[in-house]
Computed example of a mutant assay.
Amino acid sequence: MAVLNIRVEDRVRDQLKELADDEGISLSEYVRNLVMEAVVPVREQQEARHGGEPPQETLRLIDRQILSMLHRILGRVLPEDANDVDGDLNYQLMRAQILEAGYTGEYWYATAGFQTELSHRDCDRVKDILDMFRVITYSIERLEKDGAEVDEELKGSLEFVGFDHNDPLEGQMASYVQFLMRDGRWTELGAQLERHDNGNSHHRVLEMYLRMLAEYRRIMDGRGRGFSRMDYFLSLDELQQIDEASVHPSSRKLKG
């Protein structure tokens, strides 16, 4: 059996030991169980596909009845000159007929336009990334206000460039960013998105963001809990650490 050595802070080790004791097993066995849970599926799982939601192969009769009725109602209340995503009366009646007749090969009409769900984990990742770049942005502004010189190249590499619109997952994350910012949250990042084709990075950036986020978490975890906004500002050295983390480990020597 292979041996895996990991280094964690003392407090993390103590917390893991408490959890292991609660379950009546050793610390080694508890951590091994966590690793097994991460890499060994209990049931067969299909990798999440991002993009258009696949059509239903079958629908319950009650679902067909409800959906058919809704299409018929919508068709009757649409304006006579309706020509948007809801179509017109004939379009809605056609969708009702598909459901009533049970034409399963045409059920894709029922899911047309629906996207695969963005998981709770990925939603949280987007919010964490936005929060990180918000802190980075305010930290740079504060440093410059205090008279510190922040290299233009560093400032540029620490800008939020959005996500790759051509990648199914990142494209959905980009749409989620727009959704989150619609009510005034993270608006300080708006100018950065505009400078980068309205948030289209044109290349995959999620893995880079996750490396930066891991370094950001390490920095913040090393601090005591604060109650002032000043406690969340990053120093110039910390900004450089996050910038270095953005580079893939195999390329860091080349950058240096």
Rank of each mutant, 00 (worst) to 15 (best):
L4T: 03
V40T: 14
C123K: 14
Q97G: 08
V205L: 11
A38I: 01
R195S: 13
V161M: 02
D167A: 04
S251Q: 14
N83V: 03
D221P: 00
P41R: 02
D81M: 03
D221C: 04
L236A: 07
S175P: 00
D81T: 05
D183T: 13
L61N: 07
E152V: 04
T116C: 14
V12S: 04
E37T: 02
D88Y: 08
K145H: 13
G256T: 06
T187C: 01
V126W: 01
M230Y: 14
G156M: 04
R32W: 02
R125Y: 11
A48T: 12
R11T: 13
V40I: 15
V161C: 01
E141W: 08
A148R: 09
R95I: 06
S175L: 13
Q45M: 11
S246E: 09
G184P: 02
Y91C: 09
V39L: 15
L189F: 10
Y209H: 09
T111E: 11
D10F: 03
L19R: 14
C123W: 04
Q15V: 02
L34I: 14
A214K: 12
E53W: 10
Q46M: 09
L16P: 08
P54M: 06
R211I: 03
S139Y: 09
T58K: 12
I136F: 04
Y30A: 05
E29L: 09
F233V: 12
R229K: 12
P55T: 08
L130E: 05
Q178T: 08
V31A: 02
S235M: 01
I98G: 02
D131S: 10
Y138A: 10
L239R: 00
L213T: 03
V85R: 12
H120C: 01
L193H: 06
H196T: 05
R121E: 15
L99H: 05
S139I: 05
K253I: 08
E188A: 11
P168T: 07
L213E: 07
R229M: 13
Q241S: 15
Q241E: 14
L180H: 11
I129K: 04
G190D: 12
L118E: 00
K253Y: 11
G171S: 02
I6V: 15
V31K: 01
H71R: 12
M1P: 09
L99R: 03
R121H: 12
L118Y: 00
G87W: 08
M1D: 08
G147Y: 03
L143T: 07
